[in-house]
Design a protein around this nucleic acid. Structure first.
Length: 478
RNA sequence: GCUUCUUUAGCUCAGCUGGUUAGAGCACCUGACUGUUAAUCAGGGGGUCCAAGGUUCAAGUCCUUGAAGAAGCGCCA
């Protein structure tokens, strides 16, 4: 008798012989087992009849134990489920000592997210994290699906990089030099010629520059991989190791880029609505229960599924940076002096300003484009006004910046000028400049923070709860 | 990195202006229970009050420093 997944078993008509395997979530009245195998948010109920199962087996059944159960799938006499399994034979594959289980988050009670994070190796066993990580998988799958359907190629850019030009943040050094006996050169600096790669190397902060190289031949490419930032960021939406999706498209301008980002986000969210119904229903209910404990002002105006449907059915607002500044200067909080940070042309928008635009003014995703060139990266294309670059940020309610992108500077002379202004040495990016020498063309792309997407789709409010093993300052456990 | 808050039983928390033996619910253990689904009922065990130092006759409680966690800010995705 082959084992069948609990998700499938729950959809079957009654049948005399099935085998399910899973972990015990609850054992009530010495008679009812809730068994979960991760295939589904719901568990299946196993019923022990009379004295069919030997006492020494029953004694080993406790929360957390792994079981293989053979028996008949029958209509349930109880109210909580349609079908259940009358156990004929139970094999305890792995026991779980209750006194030790008690010290873990396996104990069947409500745990704080902080406590669950401390036991990240076990939190997969909870309904909440089961739902989150099934959705994380579905979103990764949908991303590949979207790009594949639209003629993009998945490009693997290096994780160890010799490029330090991106300027997206502090980098983690990669070395196998002996730290207790570092070789120095005549100038007293670290002699990287003796290092593994013969030069200074780091973990990547972005695959974009390499993705551009691919796009300038393959036409449309995307990266989807881990990214590393050694910033001392202590917030609920930053990780030192996170996953980023970076499409790059040849013969595209900023408008094409914005259109792609909107279509892409809508596709992913629609995919979740259509393919993760049960997990989303669970997460929505959980959020509603949490909200009941909160004062009205802090509750969500729409529930999780309503928020997702809203994204799919409404257009993103698009305004230029200049318009955004003017709008903020006409806003109530500005006039009442409620903003802590200055609002004037040339400064970067602070969280409070982005929040106002997204959550108060428009109440939907907002794309802000054409930023002052001084506050953006060297590779972004100069606009004709001489002041701005063809950059765009997609801001999502509750998350803030979820996507950052731009049309890239394709004109060799302008790019060289920009590189000089940003104090980057040309010989470090000779390979990047080559694409502008040999058949340069307009192109554009963006970066989507995968975990920020998962936060939005699941309604989780801390980024550490949407990645299995979060890497943050002072934390690299597991 | 900055600001604020938190740290007491396995978990979630209470513990007042410093004062005798530090409490509750859940969990755990023992027993009862053949339709439970946050099972229920009876009984029981369980504490380095985050760490170090200080003030005091007396510190879980006050002070200093540190650590860890959270929220917000900055950096960004």
């Amino acid at each position: 008798m082959p084992r069948i997944k609990i998700k499938e078993a729950l959809e079957l008509q009654p049948t005399p012989n099935i085998n399910v395997k899973g972990w015990v979530r609850a054992f009530r009245s010495n008679r009812f087992i809730a068994l979960n195998d991760g295939s589904y948010i719901h568990s299946i109920q196993i019923v022990l009849e009379d004295e069919k199962i030997p006492e020494e087996i029953v004694r080993k059944i406790s929360i957390g134990a792994a079981l293989s159960v053979k028996g008949a799938l029958v209509e349930s006499l109880g109210k909580g489920q349609k079908v259940e399994v009358l156990a004929e034979e139970i094999e305890v594959l792995g026991e779980a000592n209750p006194e030790e289980v008690q010290k873990t988050i396996l104990q069947p009670k409500k745990h704080s997210l902080e406590k669950l994070r401390e036991q990240a190796h076990l939190r997969f066993r909870t309904n909440l994290f089961g739902a989150v990580f099934r959705i994380r998988h579905a979103m990764a799958f949908a991303i590949h699906n979207y790009f594949n359907k639209n003629g993009f190629y998945y490009l693997h850019t290096p994780i160890i990089t010799g490029s330090d030009a991106e300027g997206a943040g502090e980098m983690f050094k990669v070395t196998n030099l002996p730290l207790e006996n570092i070789p120095f050169n005549e100038e007293g600096k670290v002699d990287y010629s003796k290092d593994f790669f013969g030069k200074e190397t780091n973990l990547t902060v972005s695959g974009q520059l390499e993705a551009e190289l691919g796009a300038m031949a393959l036409g449309q490419v995307y990266t989807f991989g881990p990214t590393f930032r050694a910033e001392n960021s202590n917030t609920s939406r930053h990780l030192a190791e996170f996953w980023m999706i970076e499409p790059e498209v040849a013969f595209a301008d900023l408008n094409d880029d914005m259109a792609l980002s909107e279509d892409f986000m809508k596709y992913l969210i629609r995919y979740a609505l259509e393919n993760c119904k049960d997990d989303l229903a669970f997460l929505m209910q959980r959020e509603l229960n949490e909200d009941k404990q909160k004062p009205k002002a802090q509750r969500n105006e729409m529930n999780l599924i309503e928020r997702l449907e809203f994204i799919v059915t409404n257009d993103f607002e698009r305004i230029s940076y200049t318009e955004a500044i003017e709008l903020l200067q006409r806003s109530k909080p500005y006039k009442k002096n409620k903003f802590k940070f200055p609002v004037e042309w040339g400064v970067d928008l602070a969280s409070e300003h982005e929040r106002f635009l997204v959550e108060k003014q428009f109440k939907k995703p907002v794309i802000i484009y054409d930023y002052p060139k001084e506050i953006k990266a060297f590779y972004m294309r100069n606009n004709d006004d001489g002041k701005t670059v063809a950059a765009m940020d997609v801001l999502f309610p509750g998350i803030g910046e979820i996507i950052g992108g731009s049309q890239r500077e394709e004109r060799l002379d302008v790019l060289k000028e920009k590189i000089k202004d940003f104090n980057i040495e040309e010989e470090h990016v000779w390979w990047y400049l080559d694409t502008r020498k040999f058949g340069t063309a307009p192109h554009a792309g963006f970066g989507l923070g995968f975990e920020r997407l998962i936060m939005f789709v699941t309604g989780m409010t801390n980024i550490r709860d949407v990645i299995p093993f979060p890497r943050t300052p002072k934390n690299a456990e597991f």
